[in-house]
Each structure stands twice: as C-alpha cells, then as structure tokens.
Amino acid sequence: MSIQHFRVALIPFFAAFCLPVFAHPETLVKVKDAEDQLGARVGYIELDLNSGKILESFRPEERFPMMSTFKVLLCGAVLSRVDAGQEQLGRRIHYSQNDLVEYSPVTEKHLTDGMTVRELCSAAITMSDNTAANLLLTTIGGPKELTAFLHNMGDHVTRLDRWEPELNEAIPNDERDTTMPAAMATTLRKLLTGELLTLASRQQLIDWMEADKVAGPLLRSALPAGWFIADKSGAGERGSRGIIAALGPDGKPSRIVVIYTTGSQATMDERNRQIAEIGASLIKHW
C-alpha cells in the first residue's frame, strides 16, 4: 500500500482519535458579512469528516447552483462504474471539434489522439474542462443518470439537468442544476469515506481534487503551510461562485467545507476574496 493510499485508508482512524471539535460562531459572522459585502445569498456548511456531524452552517438547506462543483460527483459516478466493471479508466475516447464547448483548455489539445477516461476526469476536476465533463456525462448516460446515481446514494436534493455550459445559467428560483450545502457536503463525505467506492477509487477521487489547479484564489489562499486540501470550485452566471473541499491540518483532511453564493453584482475577484476570507476565519478558529 502506498503512503497516499495509507493516508486515505486511515482518515477515519486518525479522526477518531482527534480531540473533540467545537464550532466557532466567528466564522458564521464572516459568512454573514460576506453576504453584506456581496449583496447576495451565501450558503455555508462545515462537517466533521469522521462523524458527519454538522459543526457550523448557514442557509444549509437553500438551493444554490452547483456550477462546476458537480464534476466531482460526476467522476465519482464514473469511478463507481469502474468498480462495477462497467468502465475502464484506460479506455480512450475520441471526439471532434464539434464536441468542444466553451472553456476546454485540455480537451482542445487532444482532438487528434483523444483522451482516456482517467485523463478526462483529471481534466474535468483539476482544470474544470467543460468538454471533458460533457464527454464523461455521455459515458454514464447524461445528466439524468448522474441525478439517479445521487438518488441511489441517498441524495434526493442534488440534481443535474443540463450539460456544460448551460448548467451554469443560475436563474433565480430555478431548481435545475442545483444542490443544497448540506446535501453536497453529505454526498461528498460519502464519496470520500464511505463504502460506495473502493479504496482505490476513493484515493483516485481525492487525488484529482488535491491536484486542483484553478481554485488557488479561494480556500487555498488562506491555508497555512502543512495543511491538506482537496477541492473543486465552480463559477456561473449572475454572480455565482462555489467551492467544495476536504481539508485539515497535519497533512490530512478532517472536515468537509461547502460554500456557495449566487445573485451578486460583485466582480469575480471580490467573490473570490470573500470566500478566501471565510476560509481564513475557519482556519483561525479551527
């Protein structure tokens, strides 16, 4: 067993022997301040990774656009098919120029040779490549099948209805392509620590998230040296922004954090800054 596999296998073990965790309302004060600064709703939840206990939450059962955070769930569904012998990570998928959609920095470079399922998941999570996500959605049967996968996990809230990039439209009061912070946090925890996926697939999923290259201005910008984070960000229309993450000190994750916002007129930089400040408060009061 590799060191990384050992780390993920012992996530519940280490967490069980940690000192009790206590909620700190100071972080919620910052979440509410972010709402004021952005002029928009902000949803927040913080779960203990081992027990699933909610440590703090704000608007945990209000719907927010998922945006690209759905790509972690998508690759979880792909990995479940791999575990069941219905898919192979090494299978190569070929596609054409007509398949390319807006923001496809990886797939646009491989029109000639195609990409493997493993490479597509890596591109979808680490670079948020939209064509990679659409190609992977095709392998599982489309958005409705991802929703069905989530329902089978016990998540009857999260739903995907459309493809990239239309799913980022974020129309107010439109339930399409949305989740709730509580539902997303619980589902992410199941994917990373539950028995739904094999140990190898859980490790692969967290490795992809740990290698995320496009979430630097968010929670990662607030992390002290030595902290662990595996995350996936999302951005959408109407001032929408979000991030889902597993993080913790001492090089291992111990909490799940989900943050979503929508309806702001603020710039992307300002949305990023507010999420980073929430992260800084979380870490300060850990």
Rank of each mutant, 00 (worst) to 15 (best):
residue 223 L to M: 05
residue 110 H to Y: 13
residue 51 S to I: 02
residue 79 L to R: 15
residue 129 D to N: 02
residue 112 T to D: 01
residue 61 E to P: 05
residue 150 L to Y: 15
residue 212 D to M: 03
residue 74 L to A: 14
residue 260 Y to W: 02
residue 271 R to F: 02
residue 98 N to Y: 00
residue 261 T to M: 04
residue 210 E to W: 11
residue 212 D to P: 14
residue 157 V to E: 03
residue 148 A to R: 06
residue 262 T to M: 15
residue 202 R to I: 05
residue 249 P to I: 02
residue 250 D to N: 09
residue 188 L to H: 04
residue 164 E to L: 01
residue 37 Q to V: 11
residue 232 K to T: 14
residue 258 V to G: 03
residue 139 T to H: 04
residue 36 D to C: 15
residue 141 G to C: 14
residue 44 Y to G: 03
residue 160 L to W: 02
residue 257 V to D: 05
residue 109 K to I: 00
residue 198 T to W: 07
residue 25 P to D: 05
residue 279 G to E: 13
residue 207 D to K: 09
residue 275 I to E: 15
residue 232 K to S: 14
residue 93 I to N: 02
residue 258 V to E: 15
residue 143 P to C: 10
residue 250 D to M: 02
residue 131 T to L: 06
residue 276 A to G: 09
residue 223 L to S: 12
residue 90 G to K: 11
residue 165 P to A: 03
residue 181 P to D: 01
residue 278 I to H: 14
residue 274 Q to S: 09
residue 232 K to Y: 02
residue 33 D to L: 03
residue 110 H to R: 03
residue 111 L to Y: 00
residue 86 Q to L: 01
residue 251 G to W: 05
residue 90 G to W: 02
residue 180 M to N: 12
residue 224 P to H: 07
residue 102 E to C: 03
residue 229 I to M: 04
residue 166 E to A: 10
residue 28 L to C: 05
residue 46 E to S: 12
residue 62 E to D: 00
residue 169 E to M: 09
residue 268 M to T: 04
residue 131 T to V: 05
residue 96 S to M: 00
residue 244 I to S: 07
residue 242 G to S: 09
residue 102 E to N: 15
residue 136 L to P: 09
residue 62 E to A: 00
residue 247 L to H: 13
residue 116 T to M: 14
residue 266 A to D: 11
residue 138 T to R: 04
residue 76 G to F: 09
residue 24 H to S: 06
residue 272 N to W: 00
residue 81 R to W: 08
residue 197 L to M: 12
residue 99 D to M: 07
residue 197 L to I: 09
residue 263 G to K: 14
residue 182 A to V: 10
residue 81 R to C: 10
residue 187 T to C: 09
residue 42 V to W: 15
residue 278 I to L: 11
residue 166 E to P: 10
residue 37 Q to K: 14
residue 82 V to L: 09
residue 247 L to F: 08
residue 54 I to M: 11
residue 279 G to Y: 07
residue 72 V to K: 01
residue 109 K to R: 15
residue 250 D to W: 03
residue 284 K to D: 09
residue 227 W to S: 07
residue 43 G to T: 02
residue 217 P to F: 03
residue 246 A to H: 04
residue 145 E to A: 10
residue 230 A to S: 12
residue 98 N to C: 03
residue 166 E to Q: 12
residue 163 W to E: 12
residue 271 R to Y: 11
residue 129 D to I: 01
residue 35 E to M: 08
residue 139 T to E: 07
residue 155 D to K: 07
residue 169 E to P: 08
residue 38 L to V: 01
residue 173 N to H: 07
residue 259 I to H: 10
residue 56 E to Y: 13
residue 150 L to E: 15
residue 114 G to T: 08
residue 268 M to W: 02
residue 221 S to E: 08
residue 84 A to Y: 04
residue 280 A to Y: 14
residue 276 A to Q: 04
residue 244 I to W: 11
residue 103 Y to L: 07
residue 160 L to G: 03
residue 38 L to Y: 01
residue 105 P to N: 00
residue 45 I to N: 00
residue 84 A to L: 05
residue 133 A to T: 06
residue 118 R to P: 07
residue 29 V to G: 06
residue 221 S to C: 05
residue 159 R to P: 00
residue 273 R to Y: 07
residue 55 L to W: 08
residue 280 A to I: 15
residue 236 G to P: 01
residue 241 R to A: 06
residue 209 M to G: 06
residue 204 Q to K: 01
residue 120 L to C: 00
residue 176 R to D: 08
residue 233 S to L: 07
residue 189 R to H: 13
residue 95 Y to W: 11
residue 241 R to D: 08
residue 161 D to G: 07
residue 218 L to E: 12
residue 207 D to G: 09
residue 182 A to S: 06
residue 257 V to I: 03
residue 280 A to G: 09
residue 119 E to D: 01
residue 278 I to M: 01
residue 282 L to S: 04
residue 210 E to T: 11
residue 33 D to M: 01
residue 227 W to Y: 09
residue 232 K to N: 15
residue 235 A to K: 02
residue 160 L to I: 04
residue 162 R to K: 07
residue 97 Q to K: 14
residue 276 A to P: 09
residue 236 G to W: 06
residue 87 E to L: 11
